[in-house]
Amino acid sequence: MDPQEAAINRLVLWNIDLTLVDVAIVTRDAYAEAFRAVTGRPLVKLVPPLGRPDSEIVFETLAVNGVQAEDEHLPKFLSALALAFADRRGRLAKEGRMMPGAKDALKSVSRLDGVVQTVLTGTIKGNAVHKLKAFGLDKFVDFELGGYGEEVYPRATLLQVAQGRARQRLGTPFTAANTVLIGDSTRDVQAARIGGAAMIGVASGRSTAGELTEAGADLVLPDLSNASEVVAAVAALTSPVDRKAG
Protein backbone atom coordinates (compact mmCIF):
# COMPACT_ATOMS: atom_id res chain seq x y z
CA MET A 1 0.00 0.00 0.00
CA ASP A 2 1.21 3.53 -0.78
CA PRO A 3 2.51 5.22 2.42
CA GLN A 4 0.34 8.25 1.67
CA GLU A 5 -2.76 6.06 1.43
CA ALA A 6 -1.88 4.48 4.77
CA ALA A 7 -2.37 7.86 6.45
CA ILE A 8 -5.79 8.55 4.95
CA ASN A 9 -8.50 8.44 7.58
CA ARG A 10 -11.08 11.05 6.55
CA LEU A 11 -13.53 10.45 3.70
CA VAL A 12 -15.20 13.47 2.09
CA LEU A 13 -18.02 12.76 -0.36
CA TRP A 14 -19.21 15.55 -2.64
CA ASN A 15 -22.51 15.82 -4.45
CA ILE A 16 -21.88 17.29 -7.92
CA ASP A 17 -24.90 19.06 -9.42
CA LEU A 18 -25.68 22.43 -7.81
CA THR A 19 -23.02 21.76 -5.18
CA LEU A 20 -19.90 21.91 -7.36
CA VAL A 21 -21.22 22.66 -10.87
CA ASP A 22 -24.41 23.50 -12.75
CA VAL A 23 -24.58 22.00 -16.25
CA ALA A 24 -28.33 21.49 -16.49
CA ILE A 25 -28.65 22.82 -20.05
CA VAL A 26 -26.16 20.32 -21.46
CA THR A 27 -27.63 17.50 -19.36
CA ARG A 28 -31.14 18.11 -20.70
CA ASP A 29 -29.85 18.14 -24.27
CA ALA A 30 -27.98 14.87 -23.73
CA TYR A 31 -31.10 13.26 -22.24
CA ALA A 32 -33.13 14.33 -25.28
CA GLU A 33 -30.64 12.74 -27.66
CA ALA A 34 -30.42 9.55 -25.60
CA PHE A 35 -34.21 9.27 -25.46
CA ARG A 36 -34.48 9.59 -29.23
CA ALA A 37 -31.67 7.06 -29.76
CA VAL A 38 -33.38 4.47 -27.55
CA THR A 39 -37.04 5.00 -28.44
CA GLY A 40 -36.94 6.55 -31.90
CA ARG A 41 -39.18 9.33 -30.61
CA PRO A 42 -38.53 12.92 -29.57
CA LEU A 43 -38.40 13.68 -25.87
CA VAL A 44 -41.46 15.70 -24.85
CA LYS A 45 -40.94 15.89 -21.09
CA LEU A 46 -37.86 15.37 -18.92
CA VAL A 47 -38.65 14.88 -15.25
CA PRO A 48 -36.79 17.16 -12.79
CA PRO A 49 -33.69 15.53 -11.26
CA LEU A 50 -34.48 16.51 -7.66
CA GLY A 51 -31.25 14.87 -6.55
CA ARG A 52 -32.26 11.46 -7.89
CA PRO A 53 -29.94 9.01 -9.69
CA ASP A 54 -29.88 8.80 -13.47
CA SER A 55 -31.24 5.24 -13.26
CA GLU A 56 -34.40 6.49 -11.54
CA ILE A 57 -34.77 9.51 -13.83
CA VAL A 58 -34.56 7.27 -16.90
CA PHE A 59 -37.45 5.07 -15.79
CA GLU A 60 -39.66 8.02 -14.89
CA THR A 61 -38.79 9.86 -18.10
CA LEU A 62 -39.82 6.82 -20.12
CA ALA A 63 -43.08 6.60 -18.18
CA VAL A 64 -44.10 10.26 -18.50
CA ASN A 65 -43.42 10.07 -22.23
CA GLY A 66 -45.64 7.04 -22.66
CA VAL A 67 -42.94 4.42 -23.11
CA GLN A 68 -43.41 1.08 -21.37
CA ALA A 69 -40.08 0.36 -19.69
CA GLU A 70 -38.51 -3.03 -20.44
CA ASP A 71 -35.43 -4.74 -19.03
CA GLU A 72 -33.11 -3.58 -21.79
CA HIS A 73 -34.19 0.05 -21.64
CA LEU A 74 -32.01 1.09 -18.68
CA PRO A 75 -28.63 -0.18 -19.94
CA LYS A 76 -29.37 1.10 -23.44
CA PHE A 77 -30.45 4.51 -22.17
CA LEU A 78 -27.47 4.92 -19.84
CA SER A 79 -25.09 3.93 -22.63
CA ALA A 80 -26.74 6.39 -25.01
CA LEU A 81 -26.67 9.07 -22.31
CA ALA A 82 -22.94 8.56 -21.79
CA LEU A 83 -22.29 8.92 -25.52
CA ALA A 84 -24.54 11.98 -25.87
CA PHE A 85 -22.93 13.68 -22.88
CA ALA A 86 -19.40 12.92 -24.05
CA ASP A 87 -20.24 14.45 -27.44
CA ARG A 88 -21.23 17.65 -25.61
CA ARG A 89 -18.40 17.83 -23.09
CA GLY A 90 -16.89 20.80 -24.92
CA ARG A 91 -20.03 22.80 -24.11
CA LEU A 92 -19.95 22.22 -20.37
CA ALA A 93 -17.68 25.09 -19.37
CA LYS A 94 -19.27 27.43 -21.94
CA GLU A 95 -22.92 26.79 -21.15
CA GLY A 96 -22.59 25.65 -17.54
CA ARG A 97 -20.96 27.17 -14.49
CA MET A 98 -18.83 26.21 -11.55
CA MET A 99 -20.57 26.96 -8.28
CA PRO A 100 -19.03 29.85 -6.29
CA GLY A 101 -15.91 28.78 -4.44
CA ALA A 102 -16.01 25.15 -5.59
CA LYS A 103 -12.41 24.90 -6.80
CA ASP A 104 -10.88 26.64 -3.79
CA ALA A 105 -13.02 24.53 -1.45
CA LEU A 106 -11.91 21.25 -3.05
CA LYS A 107 -8.29 22.37 -3.14
CA SER A 108 -8.32 23.54 0.48
CA VAL A 109 -10.05 20.41 1.81
CA SER A 110 -7.52 18.28 -0.07
CA ARG A 111 -4.80 19.80 2.13
CA LEU A 112 -6.48 18.73 5.35
CA ASP A 113 -4.56 15.95 7.07
CA GLY A 114 -5.70 12.44 6.18
CA VAL A 115 -8.36 13.40 3.63
CA VAL A 116 -9.46 11.57 0.51
CA GLN A 117 -12.19 13.20 -1.59
CA THR A 118 -14.63 11.49 -3.91
CA VAL A 119 -18.21 11.94 -5.12
CA LEU A 120 -21.63 10.62 -4.22
CA THR A 121 -23.81 11.55 -7.14
CA GLY A 122 -26.88 10.60 -9.12
CA THR A 123 -24.83 11.11 -12.27
CA ILE A 124 -23.39 8.10 -14.05
CA LYS A 125 -19.64 7.78 -13.57
CA GLY A 126 -18.44 8.80 -17.03
CA ASN A 127 -20.59 11.92 -17.00
CA ALA A 128 -19.49 12.78 -13.46
CA VAL A 129 -15.89 12.77 -14.66
CA HIS A 130 -16.76 15.01 -17.63
CA LYS A 131 -18.62 17.47 -15.39
CA LEU A 132 -15.71 17.98 -13.02
CA LYS A 133 -12.98 17.80 -15.65
CA ALA A 134 -14.61 20.62 -17.63
CA PHE A 135 -13.92 22.97 -14.73
CA GLY A 136 -10.58 21.56 -13.60
CA LEU A 137 -12.06 19.95 -10.49
CA ASP A 138 -11.25 16.33 -11.33
CA LYS A 139 -7.69 16.45 -9.96
CA PHE A 140 -8.98 16.77 -6.41
CA VAL A 141 -11.25 13.71 -6.59
CA ASP A 142 -10.61 9.96 -6.48
CA PHE A 143 -13.38 8.75 -8.78
CA GLU A 144 -12.71 5.06 -8.06
CA LEU A 145 -14.06 5.41 -4.51
CA GLY A 146 -17.32 7.14 -5.40
CA GLY A 147 -20.96 6.16 -5.81
CA TYR A 148 -22.78 6.81 -9.09
CA GLY A 149 -26.15 6.96 -10.79
CA GLU A 150 -25.84 3.73 -12.77
CA GLU A 151 -25.58 1.76 -9.54
CA VAL A 152 -29.14 0.86 -8.67
CA TYR A 153 -29.01 1.37 -4.92
CA PRO A 154 -30.86 3.79 -2.66
CA ARG A 155 -28.63 6.83 -2.12
CA ALA A 156 -27.98 5.94 1.52
CA THR A 157 -26.86 2.45 0.53
CA LEU A 158 -24.66 3.96 -2.18
CA LEU A 159 -22.96 6.01 0.52
CA GLN A 160 -22.14 2.79 2.35
CA VAL A 161 -20.88 1.28 -0.91
CA ALA A 162 -18.48 4.22 -1.26
CA GLN A 163 -17.33 3.75 2.34
CA GLY A 164 -16.73 0.09 1.61
CA ARG A 165 -14.67 0.88 -1.49
CA ALA A 166 -12.57 3.32 0.51
CA ARG A 167 -12.02 0.81 3.29
CA GLN A 168 -11.08 -1.94 0.84
CA ARG A 169 -8.51 0.30 -0.83
CA LEU A 170 -7.17 2.15 2.20
CA GLY A 171 -7.67 -0.30 5.04
CA THR A 172 -9.43 2.32 7.18
CA PRO A 173 -12.95 1.78 8.54
CA PHE A 174 -15.12 4.69 7.41
CA THR A 175 -18.14 5.47 9.55
CA ALA A 176 -20.19 8.49 10.61
CA ALA A 177 -17.24 9.48 12.80
CA ASN A 178 -14.85 10.12 9.91
CA THR A 179 -17.07 10.44 6.81
CA VAL A 180 -18.74 13.65 5.70
CA LEU A 181 -21.10 14.27 2.79
CA ILE A 182 -21.33 17.75 1.27
CA GLY A 183 -24.47 18.45 -0.75
CA ASP A 184 -27.22 20.91 -1.55
CA SER A 185 -30.45 18.97 -1.11
CA THR A 186 -32.50 17.38 1.64
CA ARG A 187 -32.07 14.07 -0.21
CA ASP A 188 -28.34 14.37 0.46
CA VAL A 189 -29.07 14.98 4.14
CA GLN A 190 -31.33 11.93 4.30
CA ALA A 191 -28.64 9.79 2.65
CA ALA A 192 -26.07 10.93 5.19
CA ARG A 193 -28.39 10.34 8.15
CA ILE A 194 -29.40 6.86 7.02
CA GLY A 195 -26.12 5.77 5.43
CA GLY A 196 -23.85 6.84 8.27
CA ALA A 197 -22.04 10.11 7.59
CA ALA A 198 -21.86 13.63 8.94
CA MET A 199 -23.54 16.19 6.69
CA ILE A 200 -22.58 19.65 5.50
CA GLY A 201 -25.46 21.30 3.70
CA VAL A 202 -24.73 23.94 1.08
CA ALA A 203 -27.66 26.25 0.37
CA SER A 204 -26.65 26.87 -3.24
CA GLY A 205 -29.06 24.54 -5.01
CA ARG A 206 -32.27 22.65 -4.51
CA SER A 207 -32.88 23.27 -0.80
CA THR A 208 -32.80 26.34 1.41
CA ALA A 209 -30.65 26.68 4.51
CA GLY A 210 -33.74 26.21 6.66
CA GLU A 211 -34.78 23.06 4.82
CA LEU A 212 -31.29 21.59 5.13
CA THR A 213 -31.18 22.34 8.84
CA GLU A 214 -34.65 20.92 9.43
CA ALA A 215 -33.71 17.75 7.52
CA GLY A 216 -30.83 17.20 9.95
CA ALA A 217 -27.67 18.66 8.40
CA ASP A 218 -24.93 19.01 10.99
CA LEU A 219 -23.74 22.30 9.53
CA VAL A 220 -25.17 24.51 6.79
CA LEU A 221 -23.15 26.95 4.66
CA PRO A 222 -24.64 29.53 2.28
CA ASP A 223 -22.23 28.37 -0.46
CA LEU A 224 -18.61 27.27 -0.86
CA SER A 225 -17.13 30.74 -1.31
CA ASN A 226 -15.34 30.72 2.06
CA ALA A 227 -12.85 27.88 1.69
CA SER A 228 -11.51 28.16 5.24
CA GLU A 229 -15.08 27.80 6.51
CA VAL A 230 -15.53 24.63 4.45
CA VAL A 231 -12.26 23.18 5.77
CA ALA A 232 -13.22 24.04 9.35
CA ALA A 233 -16.59 22.32 8.89
CA VAL A 234 -14.98 19.16 7.51
CA ALA A 235 -12.38 19.13 10.29
CA ALA A 236 -15.04 19.58 12.96
CA LEU A 237 -17.15 16.71 11.65
CA THR A 238 -14.44 14.14 10.92
CA SER A 239 -12.39 12.59 13.65
CA PRO A 240 -9.57 10.33 12.45
CA VAL A 241 -9.97 6.80 13.76
CA ASP A 242 -7.43 4.22 14.84
CA ARG A 243 -6.66 2.04 11.80
CA LYS A 244 -6.92 -1.04 14.03
CA ALA A 245 -10.45 -0.15 15.11
CA GLY A 246 -13.48 -1.82 13.55
Rank of each mutant, 00 (worst) to 15 (best):
D138P: 05
I8F: 01
V230D: 08
K139N: 05
E229F: 07
A69G: 02
L112D: 11
S207N: 13
S228Y: 03
V21W: 08
V231P: 02
A236C: 11
F174D: 04
K125N: 09
R36G: 09
A162Y: 12
A105R: 01
I194Q: 14
R169K: 15
D113N: 12
L159G: 00
I182P: 02
G201S: 07
K131I: 05
V231D: 03
S225Y: 03
P3M: 05
F174Q: 02
I57N: 06
G205A: 12
V234A: 07
E211R: 05
L78G: 04
A32G: 04
A245D: 10
R111S: 08
L170A: 05
D113H: 05
V161F: 03
D242K: 04
F59P: 05
T213M: 14
L158F: 04
A191F: 09
T172I: 13
M98C: 06
V109T: 03
G66F: 10
G40I: 12
V23E: 01
E211Q: 15
A215Y: 07
K94R: 11
L50G: 03
P42H: 00
V189T: 08
E60F: 06
G183N: 01
G96F: 01
R36C: 08
W14Q: 06
E151M: 13
R165E: 14
R36T: 10
P3I: 10
D104F: 01
R41T: 02
A166N: 08
D223P: 04
P3Q: 10
R41S: 00
L237D: 06
W14E: 10
D87K: 14
K131W: 04
P42A: 03
V116G: 03
G210I: 12
V241M: 10
Q168D: 15
A37R: 13
A30S: 14
R155A: 07
K76V: 02
L120N: 08
R165W: 08
R155K: 15
L145G: 02
E56T: 11
L120W: 01
G51M: 14
K244L: 11
D17V: 04
Y31I: 11
A82N: 11
V129C: 02
G195C: 04
G183D: 12
A192C: 08
L224E: 06
I124Q: 13
R52I: 10
Q168W: 13
M98S: 05
R169W: 13
G246L: 10
R36E: 15
V241T: 10
G114I: 00
D71I: 06
N178Q: 07
K131N: 07
I200F: 01
A191S: 15
L219Y: 09
V189C: 10
L50M: 13
R10S: 03
P3C: 09
T39G: 07
P154H: 02
I194G: 05
Q190D: 15
N15C: 05
D54V: 06
V64M: 12
Y153E: 14
N65S: 03
T118K: 10
T213N: 15
Q190M: 15
V12N: 07
V241R: 06
T19P: 08
T186C: 13
K103C: 03
I182Q: 06
R169S: 13
R243A: 14
V64Y: 10
P173T: 12
T172P: 04
E33Q: 14
